[in-house]
Simulated scan of single mutants.
Amino acid sequence: MRVMVMVKATEDSEAGILPSNELGEAMGKFNEELVQAGILLSGDGLKPSKFGKRIAFDGDSRRVIDGPFAETRELVAGYWVWEVRDMDEAVEWVKRCPNPMPGPSEIEIRQFYTIEDFAETLTQETIDLHHRNADTLAKQQTEKS
Results as ranks from 00 to 15, higher is better:
D135E: 15
A15Q: 11
D128Q: 15
A70T: 12
G43I: 07
V64K: 07
E116L: 05
V3S: 00
E120N: 14
T121Y: 14
T10Y: 00
R85V: 10
M4Y: 06
T136D: 15
V35N: 12
V64S: 09
M4D: 06
K47R: 15
T142W: 12
W93C: 01
R132I: 08
L75W: 03
V5G: 01
D128P: 09
I107G: 04
M6T: 07
P104N: 13
V94R: 03
V81F: 08
T114V: 10
W93P: 00
R132C: 05
A138W: 07
P68Y: 04
M4T: 10
P100C: 06
E33V: 06
T72R: 01
E92C: 03
G52C: 06
E120C: 08
L41F: 02
R132Q: 14
G78C: 00
E108P: 04
A26C: 05
E74L: 10
K50N: 12
G43S: 08
A37Y: 07
D128I: 09
L40Y: 08
W80L: 09
G16F: 05
G59D: 05
D117P: 04
E116I: 07
D86S: 05
L40W: 09
I65T: 06
D12S: 07
T10C: 00
A119V: 13
L122D: 08
E32C: 07
N99K: 12
E71A: 09
V94S: 02
G24L: 12
D12F: 03
V94W: 01
F30W: 14
I109W: 02
R110G: 04
V91L: 13
K50F: 14
T121S: 12
D86I: 03
I109M: 06
G59F: 09
V7G: 04
W82Q: 00
G28W: 03
D88G: 08
C97K: 06
D44V: 03
S20H: 02
L129A: 14
K139D: 15
R110S: 07
N133E: 11
L41D: 01
S42P: 02
R132A: 12
N31Y: 01
G43R: 04
I127Y: 04
G45W: 06
S105K: 01
E32L: 13
T142F: 13
A138D: 09
E125F: 06
N21Q: 15
A70K: 11
Q141T: 11
D66H: 11
G43V: 04
L129N: 12
A26L: 10
V91W: 06
A26T: 09
S105G: 05
H130L: 15
Q111G: 13
F112R: 02
E32V: 06
E71H: 05
R96F: 07
E106K: 14
T121H: 10
Q124T: 11
M6Q: 11
A77V: 01
V94I: 14
N21P: 10
G16Q: 05
E108F: 07
K139R: 15
Q141S: 13
V5F: 04
S13E: 02
M87Y: 09
G59N: 05
E32Y: 11
E32R: 11
E25A: 11
W93G: 03
V35P: 04
N31Q: 05
R63Y: 08
T10K: 00
G78I: 00
M6L: 15
K139W: 14
G78P: 02
T142M: 14
R110Q: 10
R110E: 08
L34V: 01
G103Q: 13
A90P: 00
I39W: 01
M27I: 15
D12L: 08
F51Q: 09
A15V: 08
